[in-house]
């Protein structure tokens, strides 16, 4: 099935490119810079580097260079992206935290109004896992425990994506949780494997290896349906709680890029994501490659933003950094 999709995408992309290239041969005539709002070496950075590689292979005459501008949970880099010169030569990595969540806390100098979308390249599925020596081992015992205790759920930073997703689940399920923030996901994972917290939100890749080693136990998947990697792990939806959450990675740009450059970039992006080598490497890294066009990405960003706003208002973090 995937093969047919890829082939279709490729043909479509090739057809579009053939139309597009002669008319706008001038763009891009120099490297396109992509601002990654995190440090080099993280999953967003590596994904974008793989994309840049794929660009070099698939888009003739265009190269992509990665520029890391970390800090402020990603807000510094996104701010630099949306305030860059809108000529199509400066793009940015789009991630859930700085786009859908951080503006609600205040303290960012951009809003979703300032963002132009190129497309989505991957989704990261999420599981809630029980940590070592936790007082529960599956969904039902977790819910039973949560009736009269607030389980401690570690996250990778206050107001970050998995803080919001854990609180959003608690809200949907009508339970109380105690969120314990760490500086980054690896610190949270260390605490989880050491049994210093009860549960955390994990990616399928880390949950798989750690559960094989007996350090984590998957509780539920934050999707509509179960996945092959965890055939025995239920979803919250099938347990009767209307809750799904996943994070995603995409490409964004400042507003007001010339229309022809923008549509060319969107086509090239689609082509680069369809590249089999790119998909293979991404999958090995534990990312789920899933192309979506700019409109779909925009809708996703806005939907997440709405959920996050409600959650952040509930936990009293909404607008806390407004000046």
């Amino acid at each position: 099935m995937l093969k047919i999709n890829v082939a279709k995408v490729l043909t479509a992309a090739a057809a579009m490119a053939m139309v597009a290239v002669p008319a706008f041969a001038a763009f891009p005539d120099r490297p396109i810079q992509v601002i990654v709002p995190y440090s080099a070496g993280g999953s967003t950075d590596l994904s974008l580097r793989l994309l840049a590689d794929s660009f070099k292979r698939n888009v003739k005459g265009s190269t992509m260079v990665i520029r890391n501008q970390p800090g402020g949970g990603g807000s510094i880099g996104v701010s630099a992206t949306v305030h860059a010169r809108p000529d199509g030569y400066t793009l940015g990595a789009g991630a859930q935290g700085p786009l859908s969540l951080l503006p609600h806390l205040g303290g960012t100098d951009y809003s979703l109004e300032d963002v132009e979308y190129i497309g989505m390249m991957s989704r990261s599925l999420q599981l809630l896992v029980a940590c070592k020596d936790a007082p529960f081992t599956d969904f039902d015992s977790f819910m039973a425990y949560s009736k009269d205790h607030a389980p401690q759920i570690g996250n990778s930073g206050a107001g970050g994506a998995n803080h919001v997703s854990a609180e959003a689940f608690a809200k949907a399920a009508g339970i109380k949780v105690k969120s314990v923030p760490y500086q980054g996901s690896s610190q949270a994972r260390t605490a989880c494997i050491g049994g210093h917290i009860d549960a955390m939100v994990a990616s399928p890749a880390e949950a798989l290896t750690q559960s094989q080693a007996g350090n984590m136990t998957p509780l539920f998947l934050m999707e509509e349906k179960r996945i092959d990697l965890f055939p025995d792990t239920p979803t919250a939806v099938e347990k009767g709680i209307n809750f799904t959450w996943s994070s995603w990675k995409g490409l964004i740009a400042p507003k007001n890029i010339p229309a022809e450059n923008l549509s060319l970039l969107r086509e090239e992006f689609k082509k680069a994501v369809a590249d089999p080598e790119f998909q293979k490497k991404m999958t090995e890294m534990g990312e789920l490659v899933e192309y979506a066009d700019a409109d779909t990405l925009k809708k996703q960003v806005e939907a997440d933003s709405k959920t996050a706003e409600a959650v952040l208002r509930d936990v009293g973090m909404y607008g806390m950094n407004k000046n």
Binding site: S186, Q210, E284
Partner: peptide, 27 residues
């Protein structure tokens, strides 16, 4: 041994391992 990076550099190294399709950890 555990799949826990002790500092920033080892976190980056872990990314390098993952891309090779190797998941660090007891396994």
């Amino acid at each position: 041994a555990l799949g826990i990076p002790g500092d920033v550099v080892t976190a980056v190294l872990m990314g390098g391992l993952m891309i090779q399709g190797l998941a660090p950890g007891p396994m």
